[in-house]
């Protein structure tokens, strides 16, 4: 359970290309294409499409400013924002009809390997940013009699992030699959409607928790 699906193309048994990888690259291309098209000719007075994206970016900025503070949010938004956008697209990709049933496409976040990879990035990001924000403060954080527990905590946090995201998306996919077997037309729609909300919340929670774990280190 939770392993990547059957490899489609085998490359030395290490770099196998599975359905998740295909979907992730599709997401990558789509997000990059949107970004390129929008930033091609930026106008002082935004058009319809630019306005939408600007609203999204402003929302993200406000969202992280609430947790980290205005200046720090600006500093860390390149990573946190990308994380949010990627997870959002990855979660929503599972809602496209055929993804998960068709052999070449599968929601990336419904595989534990992908979410653990994301968590590894988040873990490295938190630790490195915390050290760079103030090494003295970072070391002082660990100078207590309960050091082993604190160190364990640092490892458990990203693991629980990964498990939460994976569990939610995998659970949704499984429920939808079962509903599909009961009644192929109509029944999965109930879960899909709920998933529209849950997918966004999961992406939000993941980045929110990453930001607040970072906040624990760098607050004065």
């Amino acid at each position: 359970m939770g392993e990547a699906s059957e490899p489609l193309v085998k490359i030395f048994g290490v770099l196998d290309i599975s359905a998740e990888v295909v979907t992730m690259f599709a997401i990558l291309v789509i997000v990059a294409a949107i970004s390129l098209v929008v930033t091609r000719n930026l106008k002082e007075r935004p058009g319809r499409f630019q306005n939408l994206i600007e609203w999204g970016v402003e929302y993200l900025d406000g969202f992280f400013s609430d947790i980290l503070g205005k200046e720090r949010a600006r500093k860390y938004i390149p990573f946190l924002g990308s994380l949010f956008i990627f997870i959002l697209f990855a979660n929503y990709s599972g809602l496209i009809p055929g993804v998960g049933i068709f052999k070449y496409l599968k929601a990336p976040t419904s595989s534990l390997s992908v979410t653990l990879g994301l968590s590894l990035c988040a873990f490295l990001f938190i630790q490195i940013s915390a050290v760079r924000a103030g090494a003295k403060h970072y070391i002082k954080h660990f100078l207590t009699p309960i050091v082993p527990l604190l160190l364990l905590d640092e490892l458990i946090k990203p693991a629980s992030l990964a498990l939460r995201l994976f569990g939610n998306i995998f659970g949704e996919e499984t429920v939808m699959e079962n509903l599909y077997h009961i009644l192929p037309i109509g029944a999965p729609m109930i879960m899909m409607a709920l998933s529209i909300i849950f997918c966004a919340i999961q992406a939000m929670v993941y980045t929110m928790l990453t930001a607040s774990y970072l906040q624990e280190f760098i607050e004065d």
Partner: peptide, 17 residues
């Protein structure tokens, strides 16, 4: 509230897994 609900929801997800 959203944050704390998500943390509690995680327990259910572990059970589900």
């Amino acid at each position: 509230l959203l944050l704390s609900l998500a943390l509690m929801e995680a327990l259910t997800i572990y059970g589900l897994l």
